[in-house]
Amino acid sequence: MRAFKLLPACKDYLWGGDRLRTDFHVHSDLHPLAEAWVLSAHPDGPSVLPDGTTLPDYLAANPGAAGTHCASFEEFPVLVKLIDAKKDLSIQVHPSDDYALAHEGQYGKTEMWVVLDAEPDAFLYYGFRHTITPDEFAERIRNNTLPEVLNAVPVHKGDVFFIPSGTLHAICKGIVIAEIQQNSNVTYRIYDYGRLGADGKPRALHIPQAMAVTQLCPPAPQDFGPHLGSCRYFTTDAAAAPFTGAADEASFVHLLITAGEGTLEMDGETMPLAPGDSVFIPAGAGAYRVAGGCKALVTRV
């Protein structure tokens, strides 16, 4: 079996909780535990193979493992996270590739969220309720009334949100999410509830950048056919065991186990699966079968 599990890079952002540790078996000494980057080749937090090799080093040594679709990108194109929002995240936006490459030296960020759990009455911000002008946007930022015109969406376990670059958004408290995104770490905070960072100072805002990239309108409807979400950087599906698939030469396959237990079967070998497991199946590895009672998000490029 050529498939292997990845160990995540973890982040202790101030809004995090402890559910990634208790519900998804993420091992970390960080408190709070806000994010686990379960599939990451980003320099700010690469995932690690069982032998201690980072995913970027593995991909450099095995260039065919990502697949021919990934070869068309300058860098590994996708990043997958588990996110535990015990408190509200900042209201924020991500830039397009063109803007980010010109101003940040890295790519922009299109992403999607799959809600893994949500407390009663949980909601998130997803674009605007109606189109506003740049002048109103600037004024509402100045007088701290921006949330009044945002699209506050009640959320439930299983909900999916696709968030193209330029879409203003915020995960709010009481939500656990799987995020599949471009391989980028560029975020422009617009509003942060006046919170202080670990240094005792207000966290930085990025108002000029946000004003330059934010789409001041409701999010456009999305239709991905049989997929949960799809773009040139990733395609993600939901699957419940038993199910089968194959890692062909075009792309690796990534399995994120979101619930239940099961086994991955390949080449006559089996691998146990549990919530939070992040499994990388290299391109060209061939057919696989997932058995048992687990659920998974299946991502490829």
Rank of each mutant, 00 (worst) to 15 (best):
I91N: 10
G284P: 04
G64A: 13
E111F: 01
P46F: 00
A287I: 00
S165A: 15
D277F: 02
F73A: 10
A283M: 08
S47I: 01
A9F: 14
A178G: 08
H31Q: 14
G262F: 12
I163A: 02
M211W: 00
N144Y: 09
A36P: 06
G127W: 10
R203L: 03
I281L: 14
V279L: 09
F161A: 07
Y193C: 08
F76D: 11
V160L: 03
P50A: 06
Y125R: 10
L255H: 12
A41T: 04
A3N: 06
G200R: 06
Q181P: 07
L82I: 01
V114W: 05
T145A: 01
P272E: 01
E269Q: 15
R2Q: 14
Y193T: 11
V301K: 13
V93N: 05
F73D: 11
L264N: 13
I171L: 13
P275K: 06
V149E: 05
F161T: 00
H103T: 15
C217Q: 14
G200P: 09
Y125F: 15
R189M: 10
E74G: 15
I132K: 06
D97S: 03
T258I: 15
C217L: 07
E269L: 11
S278L: 09
K201R: 15
N62E: 13
P242V: 01
D121S: 14
D121I: 04
Y191Q: 09
S251A: 13
A259P: 00
G197W: 03
D84H: 04
P56L: 06
R140G: 04
F123E: 15
E136V: 11
Y233V: 02
D98T: 14
V38L: 10
G17D: 04
T187P: 08
G200C: 02
T131V: 03
T68N: 05
D199H: 00
D277L: 03
S47W: 03
S90H: 09
A178Y: 01
